[in-house]
Simulated assay, not measured.
Amino acid sequence: MRYYDPHTLQIFITVCEEGSVAGAAEKISIVPSAVSKRLSALEEQVGVKLLERTKRGALPTPAGEVLLRSARETLIALERMHAELSEFSDGVQGDLRILASLSVICQFLPKQISTFMQAHEKVRITLEEKVSSLITRGIEEGRGDIGICWEDAHTKNLDSRPYLTDQLAIVVNAQHPLADKSGLFFEETLAYDHVEILPGSLVSLTLQREATALGSPIRFRIHVTTFDAACRIADSNIAIAVVPLEVAALYETAMNIKTIPLNDPWATRNFVACVRDYSKLSVPARALFDHLTNLNQ
């Protein structure tokens, strides 16, 4: 039986994810020459070329793709074994990675993670903010243990459970012509310039799709990556923004803005928590997944 060093497998995974030896070396804090030496030894061990060096960086060959998938599954299995064995002596412990949308991170998730970590002090959690398409892909590829995203994302290949619901709203300057409205349909906002938050996100694509269906494409005047920036743009009366109602409410007292709920059915969003295979989750991952989803039933 051939032995594959888990540390070398992790280095190989990191090179594939970062797209370069230098990027991987920086991320895992070792010198590039050591990374290259590990990769050469791995290729010699398997007897095939695993990486192709191109102008775009280091890309896995077909054989490399097979190893990448298997290496991720192997390291997940080792982590699960370690967590399950450790539970006998030390209680639930381990390292978990959550991939979540900006809306979830800004509204619900931090407090829920806090209550879980108070009960399980030996669990360490890495939280990464990503758009929904990258969340589902990351969970499918083993880059994260738990994903939380809008249910409209493609989760059919994953085990998912209902999470929470939020409401989208329009944020405008307090002197804006729409500011006196108690509720709005999205169509009523299309005469005005909008802020695009996280270009390429599911919300951005949904707004574009709905605007096109209404026969009046949305005008994105400015692009930002955070809700804070979007609210500040609205406060400056440069453009209006679509943000979660609960998030916007946090900024109303500090800014000269008005928050108006959107009445369109799609503006009420259901989120889901998803994993690749619930039956194969490690003990801490299963505990966290149950914690997040049971809280919201």
Results as ranks from 00 to 15, higher is better:
R161S: 08
G183C: 09
Y192D: 00
L184E: 06
G138I: 13
R161F: 10
H176Q: 03
C149A: 09
I170A: 02
I148D: 02
K156L: 14
L178I: 07
I139D: 02
V172G: 01
L190N: 02
D159T: 14
F186Q: 02
E187D: 11
P177H: 03
F185A: 10
D145N: 09
F185T: 08
N157E: 14
F185N: 12
T165L: 12
T155G: 02
L190F: 03
G183I: 15
Q167R: 08
P162D: 11
E188S: 07
T155M: 11
N173S: 05
W150S: 01
L178D: 03
G147C: 07
G144M: 10
I139T: 06
F185M: 12
I170R: 00
L158D: 04
D166G: 06
N157G: 04
I139H: 00
G142H: 03
R161N: 05
H194T: 06
H194I: 08
T155W: 12
I135F: 15
E141L: 15
D152P: 05
L190C: 03
Q175T: 13
E140S: 05
R161P: 01
E188F: 09
S160H: 10
P177T: 05
Q175I: 09
A153P: 00
R161E: 15
D166Y: 08
R137E: 12
P162A: 04
D180P: 03
R137A: 13
I139R: 00
D166P: 00
S182A: 07
L158N: 01
V172R: 03
D145H: 14
G183N: 11
F185C: 10
V172A: 08
G138A: 10
D159R: 03
T136F: 05
T165H: 08
D145A: 07
P177I: 10
G183V: 15
E188V: 05
E141F: 12
I148M: 04
L190M: 08
L168G: 01
N157K: 14
C149K: 02
I170V: 12
L178N: 04
A179V: 09
C149P: 01
G147Y: 05
D152H: 09
D180I: 11
E188I: 08
K181F: 09
I146K: 01
A179S: 08
H194A: 04
V171I: 14
H194V: 05
V172M: 08
A174V: 15
H194S: 06
H194M: 12
V171K: 01
D145E: 10
R143I: 13
P162Q: 07
D193R: 08
E151F: 11
D152W: 11
G183L: 14
Q167D: 05
L158V: 06
L164V: 15
L164K: 10
D180W: 11
R143C: 14
E188N: 10
E151Y: 11
N157V: 15
F186G: 01
L158I: 09
D159I: 09
R143F: 14
V195W: 02
L184G: 00
I148C: 01
V171F: 11
A174D: 12
P162S: 10
G147F: 15
T165P: 02
L184Y: 09
E187N: 06
I148L: 05
P177F: 06
Q167K: 12
I135W: 06
W150K: 00
G183A: 14
S182T: 15
T155L: 13
A191Y: 12
W150G: 00
H176I: 12
